[in-house]
Design a binder for these strands. Structure first.
Length: 213
DNA sequence: GTACAGATTGAG
DNA sequence: TCAATCTGTACT
């Protein structure tokens, strides 16, 4: 608890936070079960200018409203009708910027008869991560500074050489300029367990999605 | 009221 | 390669 990150940490530049979250510990206590994982992959969304952001052009709805809160709050939403996406707000109030947590390396939790390989795959994607941690709409707008259910603690030291950056995943709809921004970050040493084919899937998804003529 | 498409995943 | 699944949002 003493290690919990404070407000000032979350009110800085979003890209700095996106990288800074790598190696930190994400802690969840849901239904009395405590789970902890090291954050190993993130993505930044920087509205209103970012076409891939839900707050693009200042759009503010019931769904994305908490994006406008000061840094350190939880913005969680359902995608594809099935999977929760866990984001952390950043920057000052009324600046709709956030960081999507895409993958964790499980450290603590209940692992029923699982080998190392299986445990590593429990949270190696944004939807899987939420499923394992027990995250859903209950956490919408939660404050990481004082929540009893979710917060972030200091983790292992990370050096700049450990951080890889690539374009974000599955946002081709935002156009090449924004889809091309290198705002996805991950730790080099965990690359082996991240879904490598995700980017190819993004293109396939675009091709199979129904669109208006 | 109705249609549409998505910050994914896992099975075939 | 592709279906599942459902809600916010836009438009009639």
């Amino acid at each position: 608890m003493a290690q919990r990150l404070k407000r000032a940490w979350y009110t800085r530049n979003t890209l700095t936070i996106g990288k800074g979250l790598l190696g930190k510990k994400l802690v969840s206590v849901v239904d009395g079960v405590r789970r902890v994982g090291t954050i190993i992959e993130t993505e930044c969304y920087i509205g209103p200018k970012d076409r891939a952001s839900h707050a693009y052009n200042g759009k503010r709805t019931k769904r994305n409203g908490v994006e406008f809160l000061i840094g350190g709050h939880v913005y969680i939403y359902l995608v594809y009708g099935m999977y929760w996406q866990f984001n952390i707000t950043t920057a000052k109030e009324d600046m709709p910027e956030c960081v999507l947590i895409r993958a964790l390396y499980p450290l603590e939790g209940y692992f029923p008869i699982m080998n190392k390989k299986e445990i590593e795959k429990l949270a190696n994607g944004p939807g899987k991560m939420c499923r394992w941690m027990g995250f859903d709409k209950k956490l919408y707008g939660e404050d990481l500074i004082k929540s009893r259910h979710v917060w972030i603690e200091k983790g292992m030291p990370i050096s700049e050489e450990d951080i890889c950056e690539t374009p974000r995943i599955n946002i081709e709809y935002a156009g090449t300029l924004w889809a091309g921004k290198p705002w996805r970050f991950f730790l080099r040493q965990y690359n082996y367990l991240l879904a490598k084919e995700t980017y190819a899937r993004a293109i396939q998804h675009k091709n199979t999605t129904k669109r208006r003529i």
